[in-house]
Write a protein that binds this DNA or RNA. Structure first.
Lengths: 177, 177
DNA sequence: GAAATATGTCAACAACATTGACATAATTTC
DNA sequence: GAAATTATGTCAATGTTGTTGACATATTTC
């Protein structure tokens, strides 16, 4: 592999590949599209390597994260946030419960509900994961103008779907969150 | 499901879940962590729905995208960008070639190489995908201060790993791209 | 008491990733 | 020119995460 490395993200020169034919009036934003791809990959890649040591994957990460952020939430609420099926959640939840990271308690008002909580062990893991992602964000934003953070948050929240009823984006835009 | 929707992203109040115990000095950045999750999900979710009509998935999207962006690249270069295994690539590449979206031609200097090109059909698909993602970005950035775009691009590129040798991040930071 | 709800579980399947081994053709090295 | 290396393809096996659809149980609501 002594071949020249593929050019990819930051090109300002480079022959225009296909000039957005069939997309009248839209300026192809290759740069941000690819930056989102690479940035997200590495952003979740680092947690992945820690999770692997516990035999967990990304799905476990999401569950631990949102239970940490919303202790006592119901299974239905978690499904609503993650937008996955009951079965997909059940699988990873089972791992997390049997591993002693997550606990279930019956709801007091409605005893059909299984409220989800982190154990101290689960909280420690969640904190580690949040820590590494927060550090990465902090590094990435360091030295930038003070208004950057707000602009970035605004941009990301505007990327989220507003139409899909019940979606995270929907809940954000209606202030239900 | 008449239960109250789970709070998740934009909370400034809310009881602090675990206050980053075990992460001395790190301020947990729940907001950006979750915005990245939701934003990326919807950002790739829209393309997903178009790809489904062709019987394709995300892996096909990535291949079409990077072949479009780098016509004539070799299989090895594509593997290098995607950071997946030969087998994973082979599977989707086979679909794309048999479907008439991608073409292979032997290299002129090195005839072992199979250079990858999009057919007009493949280019049309790539353009559609780039179009919808570009529109989403454009909408998200509309009305923001003119310097926003640069700040966002900087932030995202800073999220990318610089250490991993040969990685996209590495290539970016060394200007090899 | 009947209907609706919250959750759990089972079976089957699909997409996408992995590893490791091996085959072929072409190029490079000595 | 023979040997080693390289670029690619392919096979078999496996794991994670997602899906659908059906069904069971406990609890709440009407």
């Amino acid at each position: 592999m002594t071949s020249s490395p593929a050019k990819t993200v930051p090109d300002s020169s480079a022959s225009p590949p296909s000039q957005g034919q069939g997309n009248p009036g839209i300026v192809p934003d290759y740069e941000l599209i690819e930056l989102l791809f690479f940035a997200y990959r590495d952003f979740v890649g680092e947690p992945d390597r820690l999770l692997e040591k516990h035999g967990f994957g990304r799905a476990h990460h999401r569950v631990v994260h949102f239970v940490n952020r919303n202790e006592g939430l119901t299974v239905a609420e978690l499904l609503d946030i993650l937008e996955i099926t009951k079965q997909s959640l059940a699988r990873v939840l089972k791992d997390l419960i049997s591993g002693g990271f997550v606990e279930q308690r019956s709801g007091q008002e409605d005893r059909r509900q299984r409220l989800l909580f982190l154990t101290p062990k689960g909280r420690a893991l969640a904190d580690q994961l949040v820590g590494m992602q927060s550090r990465r964000i902090s590094r990435a934003i360091a030295g930038a103008a003070p208004e950057s953070r707000g602009l970035i948050a605004k941009f990301l929240s505007e990327l989220i779907d507003r139409e899909r009823p019940g979606s995270a984006g929907q809940r954000i835009s209606t202030g239900t969150i």
